[in-house]
Simulated assay, not measured.
Amino acid sequence: METRDQDLKKELAATLQARGELGAEYEAALIDSFLEKVDRRLDTTLDRRVRRQLAEQQVTVARGGRPAPPGSFGERHGLAVVSLVLAVPLSAIGAANAGIGGLVVSWLGIVGVNAFQAARGGRLFRRREDGAVRENDGMSDWSG
């Protein structure tokens, strides 16, 4: 993992050096290029984690065990963690553009999203089996 971090540091250093050589008119293009590399790195890391988690669940089921329940820690607290990470830039943008009122509105939005998730039992999305109606009652598949 440290090698990957070093690669990213080298990319950032190269981007900053290119910005110094090319000037401010190319700044947006250089930043976009660097962010695309970071995005690809995040996608690769996320894909690897998802594949590993799916493999672990398959091994658990194959051994006769049960997979982690749907309300596992990551699912229950994922949105809360993400919203706290995003709270910093949202607070800065709100406060910079609208002062204390913008800060209050941004935090009300953050609290509102987390309250909505908590009211749904900590799940972001309804699972098909949770919303499905029995086939023999003649109703649609979703109870909406």
Score class of each variant (00 low, 15 high):
20 G>W: 08
43 D>I: 00
2 E>I: 08
102 G>Q: 01
37 K>N: 09
61 V>C: 15
144 G>Q: 06
58 Q>T: 12
144 G>P: 06
56 E>Q: 13
27 E>L: 11
65 G>Y: 02
128 R>S: 03
6 Q>W: 01
132 A>G: 02
9 K>A: 08
31 I>R: 14
92 A>F: 07
79 L>Q: 05
84 L>W: 02
29 A>E: 14
138 G>W: 13
110 I>N: 06
106 S>R: 01
13 A>R: 10
92 A>P: 02
135 E>N: 07
137 D>W: 13
37 K>V: 08
12 L>Q: 13
53 Q>M: 14
11 E>R: 03
142 W>V: 05
37 K>Y: 07
33 S>P: 02
43 D>P: 02
1 M>I: 11
110 I>E: 10
2 E>C: 00
4 R>E: 06
58 Q>A: 14
109 G>N: 04
132 A>F: 11
22 L>G: 10
58 Q>F: 04
36 E>F: 12
4 R>W: 03
10 K>C: 12
9 K>T: 12
132 A>E: 01
121 G>A: 02
57 Q>S: 08
114 N>H: 04
93 I>G: 11
20 G>P: 14
49 R>W: 05
57 Q>T: 06
121 G>N: 01
135 E>K: 13
104 V>C: 07
66 R>F: 01
90 L>S: 04
98 A>Q: 11
16 L>P: 05
1 M>K: 09
85 V>N: 04
42 L>H: 15
96 A>F: 08
105 V>S: 01
15 T>L: 07
13 A>P: 00
122 G>Q: 00
25 E>C: 07
59 V>W: 00
18 A>E: 12
72 S>H: 15
35 L>T: 06
141 D>I: 12
53 Q>N: 09
101 G>A: 14
25 E>T: 07
14 A>V: 06
67 P>L: 09
122 G>K: 04
50 V>Y: 03
83 S>C: 04
48 R>I: 02
128 R>T: 09
108 L>C: 09
101 G>E: 15
56 E>N: 10
129 E>K: 07
87 A>M: 07
74 G>D: 08
92 A>H: 12
72 S>N: 15
47 D>P: 08
34 F>K: 08
2 E>F: 05
74 G>V: 04
129 E>T: 07
12 L>W: 07
40 R>L: 14
107 W>L: 04
28 A>E: 15
5 D>G: 02
101 G>Y: 12
95 A>R: 09
36 E>Y: 14
9 K>E: 11
35 L>F: 11
39 D>C: 02
88 V>T: 13
61 V>K: 13
66 R>W: 00
39 D>H: 08
140 S>R: 10
78 G>H: 01
11 E>I: 01
20 G>N: 07
20 G>C: 09
19 R>L: 15
78 G>A: 03
64 G>S: 06
73 F>Y: 15
36 E>M: 11
42 L>R: 08
39 D>W: 14
24 A>R: 11
125 F>I: 03
